[in-house]
Design a protein around this nucleic acid. Structure first.
Length: 488
RNA sequence: AGGGAUGUGGCGCAGUCCGGUUAGCGCACUUGGUUUGGGACCAAGGGGUCGAAGGUUCGAAUCCUUUCAUCCCUACCA
């Protein structure tokens, strides 16, 4: 195991790559743009997934599974939708290989060409709405609240582990409603749910807002987003919830009979978060010593290290403590490896972001105590074994809170307000981060700012300052300030 | 997509310009011993055919062509 992680201030991208590698979250694979999610990385995703799945089910959703392959013709039924994804679709054209007649290996059998090519799903609206047409006949069939956990493929040019990969894992919810109002409420409810998950579980503060027309999901009437700030002050779109209007219902002829026996198109939403959240988690909390995980998402919350080595009496005491902690629902690992020294283990567990480390040595036992170290602040203290369970339980809560407080403070420090375009440009140049400014609501102005500075409108915030003003670029009327930032 | 760089045991690298003994080194690994409260030490071992394919040559990690992958910068992107 190599020791060095690139310092954040030296090269933030490299630091991120180092963390992913050294904390064993993911590996590159033989396939361009695709990663192997290693057990540690996958365990974090599973924790996220379990919690989100519970939240979806608590709000009335059920899981289902739709095909990986989508007939090409489906994708073209919604004009804006196909426009948005056409450039990054993987296409299946054949269904058979054959031995290479001219040499070793195998080649595509030209006689096995598919009559209609299949697209590997970049998202599933089309295949799902094609299916919903058969499922929805009456207002009694509504609402239809379905989620699926799946992989999708978007053939990206530049990829980075978790943040942007050609194949990624996500959940996509697809709901159908009788009324516009109900569909809008659904998309907002999920938006709130995502924000709550980000803050309570990931300890990652987010700004809730609506996307501009330019940044909106292809095929949506309204896209809601949660935007987080990473430690390099760039914005990360962490989750989106879309109100789709009747666009897909009309494209796929999904109609129902209302209680007056009149035929109407249904109203739709879709929403998703992906393994990108793992990247966001890393970039929100980790430091130059390695990964830092919030306790609620840490696969292992506490590690017990016998010092100086796994002597029987130390392991016995460690096992007692572990049992007490596990009875409280805390996940614990006891390190029994006799070949590594404590110092090595300390560094290793810090690298992997385990929130709490308990050291037990003979000197501690004499005093009936253990050494408790917390990853987030890198502090440690002696704690009486008698009160260890309460202490650790409370400590995990403290760490979870502290991470959120720190992340909020960081975002506050790096959020600025610009009144003029000159201010905006110098702020962006000198300080970066989020910049609140008035905008006239036009795509033209948004694109000008993007072209001039590289910053985009991350969202039109739903909460906070709603005072009207004048656009910083054109001086035209603006209904409220919006958030500009450079983004992932 | 443009620019730059890299690919040699599990990881990190040297060797490549100026082809030529059995391809080296550090970490990791195995065995034995001594150690052990913040990344231990000594000794002995095992493991690579040099990203892939083709070519030049008596001879290729080294030269040429093609290709794949990765990283960085810029551009692009629900």
């Amino acid at each position: 195991m190599a020791k060095e992680i690139t310092k954040r201030e030296d090269n933030y991208s490299q630091w991120y790559t180092d963390i992913v590698k050294k904390a064993a979250l993911a590996d590159h694979s033989a396939v361009r743009g695709c990663m192997v999610i290693k057990p540690t990385g996958f365990a974090i995703w599973e924790k996220m997934k379990d919690q989100l799945d519970k939240m979806f089910k608590d709000t009335g959703h059920v899981n289902a599974y739709f095909p990986l392959f989508i007939p090409k013709s489906f994708l073209s039924k919604e004009a804006e939708h196909v426009e948005g994804f056409a450039k990054e679709c993987a296409v299946v054209t054949h269904h058979r290989l054959m031995n290479n007649p001219d040499g070793p290996g195998v080649v595509v059998d030209p006689s096995a060409k598919l009559e209609e090519e299949l697209i590997v799903r970049p998202t599933s609206e089309t295949i799902i709405w094609n299916t919903y047409r058969d499922w929805i006949k009456s207002y009694r069939d509504l609402p239809l609240l379905i989620n699926q956990w799946a992989n999708v493929v978007r053939w990206e040019m530049r990829t980075r582990p978790f943040l942007r990969t050609a194949e990624f894992l996500w959940q996509e919810g697809h709901t159908a409603h009788a009324t516009e109002q109900e569909a809008i409420e659904e998309s907002r409810m999920i938006h709130d749910l995502y924000a709550q998950f980000a803050e309570e579980y990931m300890a990652m503060p987010v700004i809730k807002g609506a996307k501009t027309a330019n940044e909106r999901f292809a095929g949506a009437v309204e896209t809601f987003t949660i935007e987080a700030m990473m430690q390099d002050k760039k914005a990360l779109q962490a989750g989106t919830s879309h109100f789709l209007g009747q666009n897909f219902a009309k494209a796929f002829e999904v109609k129902y009979l209302n209680s007056e026996n009149k035929e109407e198109y249904v109203w739709a939403t879709s929403w998703g978060v992906s393994t990108r959240l793992v990247g966001g988690l890393v970039m929100t909390h980790s430091d130059d010593e390695g990964l830092v995980l919030p306790p609620k998402l840490a696969p292992i919350q506490v590690v017990i290290v016998p010092i100086p080595k796994p002597l029987p009496e130390l392991l016995e005491k460690g096992a007692q403590i572990a049992k007490l902690l596990r009875d409280k629902g805390i996940s614990v690992k006891i390190d029994q490896d006799p070949t590594k020294r404590p110092g090595f283990k300390f560094a290793e567990y810090e690298m992997k972001g385990i929130p709490v480390r308990i050291g037990i040595g003979p000197r501690d036992l004499e005093k009936n105590q253990v050494e408790v170290a917390r990853r987030d602040t890198k502090t440690k203290e002696g704690v009486s074994i008698d009160g260890i369970v309460d202490h650790v339980s409370k400590l995990l809560v403290d760490i979870q809170e502290n991470l959120l407080v720190k992340a909020k403070a960081f975002r506050a420090e790096n959020t600025h307000t610009a009144d003029t375009y000159d201010d905006f440009k110098s702020l962006l140049d000198e300080k970066g981060g989020f910049i609140e400014a008035h905008w006239d609501g036009t795509t033209e102005t948004e694109l000008k700012v993007k072209g001039d500075t590289g910053a985009t409108i991350r969202c039109i915030p739903i909460e906070g300052d709603k005072a009207p003003g004048k656009c910083m670029v054109t001086g035209k009327d603006s209904t409220q300030k919006v958030i500009f930032a450079k983004a992932y």
